[in-house]
Design a binder for these strands. Structure first.
Lengths: 223, 223
DNA sequence: GTATTTTACAATGTATACATTATTTCGACG
DNA sequence: CGTCGAAATAATGTATACATTGTAAAATAC
């Protein structure tokens, strides 16, 4: 049974604020007073304040004295930084996963995300494809076994979430991406750490180039 | 003139708690009540509470309901995780620094840290050597130009600070380390990104092996 | 004597009152 | 008319009172 322990207000505030940020209700670059947010979330300033501190540590917003919290916009430079971090850490995770010699059953979840991506691609469902893509990267990193890499990549993925949503319908259907994922899975299955690292690094570098190219092409310098 | 703006209590609490943790006054694995810490720092619970949330996000302690904050001990597994993250991100920074084609004056600070390390080594001053070593890695990452890599590596370095201090007098004098640093500097100077990345990755991998070896040898499974 | 339940306590979680401070506005002086 | 300064204002920063809740201890029943 899932215990469903009632969460405290701080945790609820974190969840609600994240949702408000990802949905764009709190627009990138906009400022919001603590009092205003507290009213909106139906609680006092204290838990809201603590929630904003947590979210600031996660890079989603910035707390500025007497100016309220600013929802951080993502620039092209931010995007480049984040993709470089993801490239470095996920490649290491891919190599670690390969070196760990996971039994095939251990790789079922990873294989499932690839199937899901292929299915989504077949019916041109971009949202479903993006979800499965996220799951692939999350599962890959989980297999790597480094808990810090898991946390950091999650934070980075959160930061680019909005920007990725915007570009989702701009790009050509990501056919190459699926092939990359399958190649990474194969390398891991064969226990070839060097290859897994190399392929995944190339995959992320290509994704970065595509995304940055799109943003520049559409003059989206801030998201 | 440096403005020396008086910091608020939250910032002071963060600084003081960090100092108490690094100095070992708050021992790894020990628990501390908010009230007790507030009394010790001469302020109310509120700023202390906010400070602990920040430090929790930085991985230095853990806030547990009704059990106070626990100063997180570092295990060998933690050490391995952290060094793997540092290896991945600093190597990327080294490659970026090489690719950026910094003019020689831009590399003066980096060269200075190497000289400082050599001087410290000549008089067998391990503390000074460790400080210069930290500065080398900090400056390298700064030259890489990725602000997120700067933040993450700082956090990771903080987490292993205690453990490094313990092993500082156990290891042989780190002669090889200085040679590595010089080789990285040379590669950056020549603009050879691939080489800079490779050398630095090897350097960090060797440091990890040395450290983990020492910890196991001395049966230090928790620091 | 042991186990279970209930009650008390102690610590965090939350709200709110108050202190502090930066910003903005209004007024006076040049 | 513009600039400088002072006071008011509005927001965060801090302290504290109070609510909630988990833990532990004590008592009772088996």
């Amino acid at each position: 049974m899932s215990a469903e322990r009632p969460k405290n207000n701080v945790a609820r505030a974190v969840d609600m604020l994240r949702e408000l940020i990802f949905s764009g209700t709190l627009a990138p670059g906009s400022d919001h007073l603590e009092t205003e947010l507290a009213l909106r979330l139906g609680m006092s300033r204290t838990p809201v304040r603590e929630a904003t501190l947590t979210l600031e540590a996660q890079g989603l917003l910035q707390v500025r004295a007497r100016r309220g919290v600013r929802i951080l916009p993502i620039s092209i430079k931010d995007m480049e930084e984040i993709y470089d971090v993801l490239t470095a850490l996920e490649s290491t995770a891919a190599a670690d996963a390969a070196a760990a010699n996971h039994a095939d059953t251990g790789l079922d979840a990873l294989a499932a995300t690839i199937s899901a991506m292929e299915d989504a691609l077949a019916v041109q469902n971009r949202e479903a494809w993006a979800d499965a893509d996220d799951q692939f990267h999350a599962e890959l990193v989980r297999l790597g076994g480094n808990q810090r890499i898991v946390s950091i990549t999650q934070m980075m993925a959160d930061q680019v979430r909005r920007a990725r949503a915007v570009t989702l319908y701009m790009r050509p259907l990501p056919v190459k991406s699926n092939a990359d994922h399958r190649a990474v899975l194969d390398a891991i299955r064969r226990g070839d750490a060097t290859l897994a690292r190399k392929i995944h690094a190339r995959h992320r570098a290509a994704a970065k180039a595509t995304l940055v190219g799109l943003l520049k092409q559409h003059h989206l310098t801030q998201l």
